[in-house]
Amino acid sequence: MWKLIIRRFLMMIPQLLLMTVLLFALAKMMPGDPFTGRFGAHTDMATLIRLRREAGLDDPWPVQYFHWLGNIFHGNFGDSYVMQKSVASLIAQRLGNTVWLGILTLILTYAIGIPTAVASATHEGSFRDRFWTTYNSITGGIPSFVMYLFMLFIFGFTLNWFPTTGSVDVNSNGFLNVLFSRLYHMILPAVSVALFTTVYLFNTLRTSLLDARSSDFVRTAQAKGVPTKQVFWKHIFRNSMLPVASNFGFDVVAVFSGAVILETIFNYPGMGQLFVQSIQTRDYTTINAIMLFSGFLTLIGSMLNDIFVSWVDPRVRIK
């Protein structure tokens, strides 16, 4: 297992270098710059030219790229042109909110998706099976942002049950008050995701459970007189979790990446919202840092998938 981890980390080095080139080029091809339009219509061109020169935006692209790359190797992601803060501090401020929301969302998604898939597969053809299959078919066909807006309008603005912006009440004092306030702000967006984005998890697990139920190893266990519950949980369920585990690594790293649409709609101050704001203001340093961070997490997620798969199914061993 350690050989796998070391080999994958070594493979990540050229992948990360190629990623930095692509991300830098994409950011530079965006129209506009961080300074144009920020100072009003009466700002003279000389001021804009001076600001661009001081920021190094007039240097050739290769010079800007290697300067940026050299700073990254020293742990310096640069300063935000717009917010006048270091990009590392901006990410650190937003990362905590994103992680909190991501963990709660992941827990709720699996807490809803796995039991409903098991209930549907173990009662195939029943009303329970038809209900959950129909529910996931409907929610899977509706764009996620539509359901987010619907939940926000009903439970945020109409019923006023949950806050519609922010991550913590500014008047909260003390650890417990801050904790409950944070949870209160996260409930609506997390539940919105968990209720309407379980279609992949549900369909994948349900199909795997139905396929495993008719497998030879299950019939052999039943012929030996193994109790039904033991057959299901030890043989059917564990083997059916393999396709779910193959995507679990990406679900874990998504906790740190942030949900762009979700955080924007619910005005939640996380990584996703910061990314959107950076694009709108052409804040190149912040854009590059966030995309590089997300790309690195994607590579980590791919490695975690291999580890999870080999752990769930002992027959799968990656040398």
Score class of each variant (00 low, 15 high):
Thr198Gly: 07
Asp169Leu: 15
Val218Arg: 04
Ser181Ala: 09
Arg182Trp: 10
Phe202Cys: 05
Tyr184Ala: 09
Arg213Ser: 12
Leu183Asp: 02
Asn173Ile: 15
Asn203Arg: 15
Leu176Cys: 09
Val170His: 12
Thr164Phe: 11
Phe155Tyr: 05
Ser208Pro: 10
Leu159Lys: 13
Leu205Pro: 01
Asp216Ala: 14
Asn203Lys: 15
Ser167Val: 12
Met151Glu: 00
Asn173Gln: 15
Phe175Asn: 01
Thr198Leu: 11
Tyr184Val: 09
Val178Asp: 00
Met186Phe: 13
Gly166Trp: 05
Tyr184Phe: 14
Tyr200Thr: 14
Phe150Ala: 03
Val168Thr: 07
Ala194Lys: 07
Asn173Thr: 15
Leu183Val: 12
Val146Met: 04
Ala190Tyr: 01
Arg219Asp: 04
Asp211His: 14
Asp211Ile: 13
Asn173Pro: 11
Met147Cys: 06
Leu183Thr: 08
Tyr184Asn: 06
Asn177Met: 12
Thr198Asn: 13
Leu205Glu: 00
Arg213Phe: 13
Leu152Asn: 02
Asp211Tyr: 15
Arg219Gly: 07
Asp216Trp: 14
Val168Ala: 05
Asp169Trp: 10
Met151Trp: 01
Arg213Tyr: 09
Gly156Asn: 02
Thr164Leu: 06
Ala212Thr: 11
Asn173Trp: 15
Asp211Ala: 14
Leu152Phe: 08
Ala212His: 09
Asn177Ala: 15
Leu179Trp: 09
Ser172Cys: 12
Leu195Tyr: 03
Pro189Thr: 05
Ser215Glu: 02
Gly166Gln: 02
Thr164Gly: 03
Phe196Arg: 09
Leu176Gly: 06
Ser172Val: 10
Leu183Gln: 04
Phe217Ser: 03
Ala194Trp: 04
Phe155Val: 04
Phe157His: 11
Phe175Cys: 10
Ser172Gln: 07
Val170Ile: 15
Thr164Asn: 04
Tyr148Gly: 08
Leu152Cys: 05
Val218Ile: 07
Ala212Asp: 02
Val191Glu: 00
Pro189Arg: 02
Phe196Ala: 01
Pro163Gly: 05
Phe217Cys: 09
Leu176Asp: 02
Asn160Cys: 09
Thr207Cys: 08
Val191Gln: 00
Val193Glu: 00
Leu209Arg: 03
Asp169Asn: 12
Asn177Pro: 07
Asn177Gly: 12
Gly156Ala: 04
Val178Ser: 13
Ser181Trp: 05
Arg206Asn: 03
Phe175Asp: 01
Asn171Trp: 11
